[in-house]
Design a protein around this nucleic acid. Sequence first.
DNA 1: GTTAAATGTTATCAATGGTAACAATGTTAA
DNA 2: TTAACATTGTTACCATTGATAACATTTAAC
Lengths: 207, 207
Amino acid sequence: MAKPAYHHGDLQLQAQLLALDTLRAQGDAAISLRALAKQLGVSAPALYRHFSDRETLLAELAIGGFEALRDRLRAVDQQIPRKALIEIGLVYVAFAQEEPNLYRLMFGGRVLPMSAHPRLDTAGKSAFEVLENTVARARQLGYLKASPVSLITAAAWSLVHGLSQLTIDGHLPGAKAEPMLTEGVLSLLLDGSRSNEQQQSQQDLTP
Amino acid sequence: MAKPAYHHGDLQLQAQLLALDTLRAQGDAAISLRALAKQLGVSAPALYRHFSDRETLLAELAIGGFEALRDRLRAVDQQIPRKALIEIGLVYVAFAQEEPNLYRLMFGGRVLPMSAHPRLDTAGKSAFEVLENTVARARQLGYLKASPVSLITAAAWSLVHGLSQLTIDGHLPGAKAEPMLTEGVLSLLLDGSRSNEQQQSQQDLTP
DNA sequence: GTTAAATGTTATCAATGGTAACAATGTTAA
DNA sequence: TTAACATTGTTACCATTGATAACATTTAAC
């Protein structure tokens, strides 16, 4: 009916979407359940029916972030090992740079320990697995050296995560001036992870 | 005199030290100016004479963290390039793992933008410079390939920062079980950054 | 329809960041 | 010595926030 609808009906989803907007625009510290409630035309305790906690809401946003990241990593073409490895790194860093506040929420240690949020934990792992599978495939095809997949994956993830965080927080001087920074950094690690049958200095072989 | 001393005399330093204790034990979210004041036997607004802001206090702690990190990086022996590069990475990651909450404060994006805290910015850069100098020296000695020092440094910092953050936040599955993880990861990047005159697969040459 | 589960409301509390106005202490110069 | 002044502390106060309790309404199950 056309009435001041006692029931909102869609509160959980709407609150999450609005919180995501706030996060994107002003960072996680700016997210307040009361402010969200006011903007949604609803009383503050109503939100507690859907999120037991402020932190639970933040965890929900982080989960969404990990899923979005995972989907973008999955979309990377897996045909050519080297191309796939470079591309997945570029996509990863691009995601962080497009969503700095969301990325900070996902990795800033604001929702800890992960063990207290099992869904968050699995969401994070599912993104990690895409990267791991890409590495495993490349190694199976003989493109990478014999080091354990877990080691190479840890190195790769560390590198892209570190680069993401450092660039979005402005720690790397002159990072914006170097559009090829990410690709160059990735190439260094790749060169050290390649099997010996592959040639060195492939920098001009990537058109 | 032996009186309930109106003047504390040492409040700024004491507050900072106590805040650091709280940070270490419970994370930055647990730092409250009022709680600090109570523990110091002082009124809450007294702290505002020394820290214009809660964030200013946090920035002060982060500055101290960057300085401590810089000092530990400076203490690394610089004689042998490869040894220096590996060792500085190990020291870096060890610092983060010993001081996870301090490290999160330094890099978690809680005190942003850095531009608003010039002292924090310079403290961060001074730690970064130690790493950069180590890379520059190794390259000058012919140990590294001809890639720009800024690129290799960015890769190195990204790697150790990423590995630090991922391990202290429990994102890397089975990281604790692998004591050689850090060294292995560092070696991968080093192998890709070495000049061609150096031999490959130096894994058994590092006793 | 009656009843029970969901989902919303108002009232209320404790903790916190922050400011204003005032008081005590220490310092400096006439 | 003492009068002026900056430092550094105090009490009083306010707005915002997270969170809970007790109550009301709507939806859905039976």
